[in-house]
């Protein structure tokens, strides 16, 4: 098996993301907007912000990952590219994983890079390691995008399937959200939380591509 179709799918998905103009920035704006509105809503008392900050960021991250997922497979169904991708020599699961990873690179990675700035807005303590925080948000985001990709593949033939994606994906987000918040807030048992987060992300990377492949075959059927 040659990896050429997988690389082509990856490159096409990257090109698609940037060709949409500001489309790739939409999740970023949503993420920043949601996080900035919270202090305005609950008041600016530093202790309170410090306590709720990590949780708010995880919720915002989960919701912003859903913003652009709707199109990643639906567009392929509409323009006929899905038929072509299903007929390459590469496994469909690898194609789907490449497309989802490309989508995470353009829409999810900027969220992780933005997270230290937002953490500062939530009065993160001076000693907090913001970079490893960004890594944790990045890993969690990767799991969010892969589970969301399953929802996107399942609703690829559904018009305005955004709500459906959220309904399918949000329950799958639960482990990542729990371990992620534990890792960031330093709650009891927080020492092993980063490892559990990595495990849940690896689990999504291992499982989601096969679910996406099955869903995409059904979408073309």
């Amino acid at each position: 098996m040659s990896p050429a179709p997988i690389l082509s799918a990856f490159r096409q998905a990257l090109g698609e993301a940037w060709a949409g103009g500001a489309g790739a920035l939409l999740p970023l704006g949503f993420f920043a907007g949601a996080a900035v509105l919270v202090p305005l809503g609950i008041g600016t008392e530093p202790g309170m912000l410090r306590a709720v900050g990590p949780g708010i960021l995880w919720v915002s991250l989960a919701l912003s990952s859903l913003v652009t997922l709707e199109r990643i497979f639906q567009a392929d169904v509409e323009d006929g590219a899905l038929d072509l991708w299903l007929q390459t020599s590469a496994p469909v699961s690898a194609i789907a994983a490449a497309k989802t990873f490309a989508h995470w690179l353009t829409a999810g990675l900027p969220l992780a890079l933005m997270s230290p700035v937002l953490a500062l807005m939530f009065q993160a303590e001076a000693g907090t390691d913001l970079l490893s925080g960004a890594l944790i948000y990045g890993l969690g985001g990767l799991a969010f995008f892969f589970w969301g990709g399953v929802g996107a593949a399942l609703s690829a033939t559904v018009r305005r399937g955004g709500l459906l994606i959220a309904l399918i994906a949000l329950p799958l987000y639960v482990p990542t959200a729990i371990f992620g918040s534990m890792a960031m807030s330093g709650a009891a048992g927080g020492d092993s939380a980063p490892l559990l987060l990595v495990a849940s992300t690896l689990f999504s990377l291992a499982l989601a591509p096969f679910a996406m492949a099955a869903a995409l075959r059904l979408a073309a059927d």
Partner: peptide, 13 residues
């Protein structure tokens, strides 16, 4: 080779 009634081109391609 498959050429369906949808052309398979992306809008920006």
């Amino acid at each position: 080779h498959w050429v369906g009634h949808r052309d398979g081109l992306k809008p920006n391609e």
